[in-house]
Design a protein around this nucleic acid. Structure first.
Length: 208
DNA sequence: GTAGCATGCCAAC
DNA sequence: TTGGCCTGCTACC
């Protein structure tokens, strides 16, 4: 599931299903998860989401009472996703659970069978990760083209595309699909491929 | 039953 | 650079 586009879709999904809903009580963590507890409990709060590259931010906002909200940064590992289900249908591997106030209760769950996913309470977007390839296109492009002297670009393009400092959101499937569709030999040196994009007359390649 | 594989990091060597 | 973290699924014996 999770490369940049899926993380972005996850944020849209959260915003869609949580729109207009009020959540209540504590955020529950599964006993098996090694991730941190989420020390947040509130009689009434709302949930919204943002995404950036391969991260999603959940924002928990108390209704009315003026208390402090929190946010949680998620990385999905190999199998993370959000699901929204009735109380009697909580899926297996639901490691973090947010309960609606309405009855019947519905639960927003962070589901992650392999448990490679992580979350950080009140964390920031990982500072080493570059701009989002989808939502910060110009910044992403500039970050690559203005730093081609970085030794990171000594490597083949297929390796560099997994470097989240420059390609935040690209994963194994996407790099393969992109290089195939653009007919770029995967082991061509990255700098050779990317230098060409500095020329404004260069026929644009799909990625940049 | 078992081997092999899976969209990602992350820390120890 | 390598191994570790995990579960679930499929192909094969």
């Amino acid at each position: 599931m999770p490369e940049g586009p899926e993380l972005h879709l996850a944020s849209l999904f959260v915003n869609k299903v949580c729109n207009g809903l009020v959540f209540t009580g504590a955020v529950e963590k599964s006993t098996v998860s090694k991730n941190t507890d989420v020390p947040f409990s509130c009689p009434e709060y709302t949930i919204s989401a943002l995404s950036r590259g391969k991260e999603v931010k959940l924002i928990l906002t108390p209704v009315d009472d003026g208390s402090e909200g929190i946010h949680i940064i998620f990385r999905f590992g190999m199998s993370g996703c959000f699901k929204f289900t009735p109380e009697d249908q909580i899926p297996k591997h639901a490691h973090l659970r947010f309960y609606t106030k309405d009855t019947p209760q519905w639960i927003l769950c962070f589901v992650d069978p392999r448990r490679f996913g992580t979350w950080v309470v009140n964390g920031s977007w990982q500072p080493e990760r570059g701009p989002c390839v989808m939502q910060e296109y110009e910044k992403f492009r500039d970050n690559v083209l203005n730093n081609l002297s970085d030794k990171a670009f000594d490597k083949p393009i297929c390796e560099v595309m997994l470097n989240q400092k420059y390609f935040n959101g690209i994963g194994n499937y996407l790099r393969a699909e992109i290089l195939f569709r653009l007919q770029i030999p995967p082991f061509m040196p990255a700098r050779t491929v990317l230098e060409a994009l500095k020329n404004p007359n260069q026929k644009p390649l799909g990625l940049l």
